[in-house]
Amino acid sequence: MADGVGTRSARLPFGGREDRLKRRLLSGAVEDNLRAIENRPPGRLYRRRRVRWPIAFAGLAALAAGALVLAPRLGWGDFAEPTPGTLVATVRAGDDAAASDPDLPPTRVPAAVFPVVVRRVVLDPGHGGGDHGTRTPTGLTEKEITLDLARRLAERLGGAGYEVTLTRQGDERLELRERARLANERAADLFVSIHVNWFEDGRANRGIETYFLGPTDDPWATRLASAENLESGYALADVKQLLESVYSEFRQDQSRALAASVQRRLVRSVRELSPEVADRGVKSAPFLVLVDTEMPAILAEVSCLSSDEEARLLAESDYRDRLAQALFEGIQAYSHSVRKGG
């Protein structure tokens, strides 16, 4: 028979973190009320669903709070800003002993050292199955749009000679790690996750943004990171290893370059039709689906369903073709730049 539960202190394992956790829960409740009052669609805690927060926040908080301690030792402070012609390798070039020492910093080598050719592309239509993603009151869902865009994009890439794989072929739910694992198993050269955004700050806002893997400078995320880091259970050594593997590999720079290429073409193409659409830029964030992939990877928020106008356009085949074409051109341009060595 059931044991009785009811004494508050008996259930709480957090000690001093209790108040922060409660505050967060209360804020969520208040936000849920505001949505109902303002007649906004139900929230899905948009970013949080895509991120393995204990890991991501551990990294973020360590970056925020411990960078001064770690950076000199790891040599991060010596890094130059990446340039189009630079790749970052995880080994110290020309130093075998150093290559085996995990404490030593990675060193930049010219991109031309690596004969990179983009051949295999994995496209990841966001969400699926019971996970609808964002959706409009009229029933247009993110999962349906992303799959359709991925199919249109796959057709174009296939026609241009790329080997293309979709992480999902139909309306099925896939864990983020499964998506990443598929890309890794296929030894993909690029991973492009397609999503449709939802902006909480107003239905009139329209914008495009593209993410690549990396730390975020978003103050909200950083604030949350500090709180979450306390509950992560990760030791400093774990965090350091995580950060080295995530942020120091050459794929971060390549991901940024791919993101920039895609973002540029998306914005240009959409603005031909709607000049008011905002260029929300190329941003970094530790999305789990990007963390687990082993190749340059981006997450493109190609549109936003929170905008009535965007929702209307997204229902049209021509607009979807436009977005797919822009994504294709972005990938193509990146691919050409890599082939030419930067």
Binding site: L12, F14, E18, L21, L25
Partner: peptide
């Protein structure tokens, strides 16, 4: 007024806030 999900209220009341 604040309106909340009933099971959330139960969880909050007994402080079963995480992994429950």
């Amino acid at each position: 007024l604040i309106i909340v999900s009933e099971p959330f209220a139960v969880a909050y009341g007994i402080e079963a806030l995480l992994h429950t």
